[in-house]
Amino acid sequence: MVKNIKAEVKNLTFSYDKASTGRPVLNSVSLPVHEKSVTALIGPSGCGKTTLLRCFNRMHDLYGSVKYEGKIILQPSGFDILSNEVDPLEVRMKVGMVFQKPNPFPKTIYENVAYGLKIRGIKKKSYIDDKVEDSLKKAGLWKEVSDRLKASASALSGGQQQRLCIARALATEPELLLLDEPTSALDPISTAHIEELVGELKKTVTILMVTHNLHQAGRASDFTAFMYLGDLIEFGESSQVFTNPKEEKTENYITGRFG
């Protein structure tokens, strides 16, 4: 499988505390993210996979001073996400994110999807209407909600809410979509829906996904990165990582010997 590289992590070392001299949370991680494909981050709790994901849209910057060393480059523009000169707002406008627990705003379904456009200062109603419809269709939610766009988002089921959050992120046409364990709060049927949706979305969007669920990583991803204690242990095509891991730690993890 040959794909262009959409984003590239280069020697990323990250600590929550600027003054910290101890072991960093991420230790010199390098990783390519291929365009229009799904890359899964797996590993035991505390391995740094969510921390890595949250570096991609600078969410850590919200909680005080943190230390990034290394780069995350978006291609083809060569835009360095972690650069000090880059405003986190700009990063977040380019990189969308969906969280563990569905977090729709207590507004209408329409307002939720339109939110990202409105905060970018877009006011043209016809454009927003089209975008809302388009994003809801992409998120596979249009058929269920087209007749009640003005209803409150909190009336939707958990799985629908999560698809709404995906639609909300899609509306702003992100260059990269981050999914942080998007199904961990959902029931099996909703989970299957989301996985199916991820498979559909990768035709148009580049996706980086953290997951706890190895089956999900195996089923839904094209590439898999295994992390352990802040190190990237192994990266490869998912078929290879799951059937024929090169590293012993990877093998132990996917065969359930720890984690």
Partner: peptide, 17 residues
């Protein structure tokens, strides 16, 4: 068509800041 260009984005970010 709504202008989604980089220049416009930077202007908006400046305004928000």
């Amino acid at each position: 068509m709504v202008d989604q260009s980089q220049a416009r984005l930077m202007k908006q970010i400046k305004f928000l800041k």
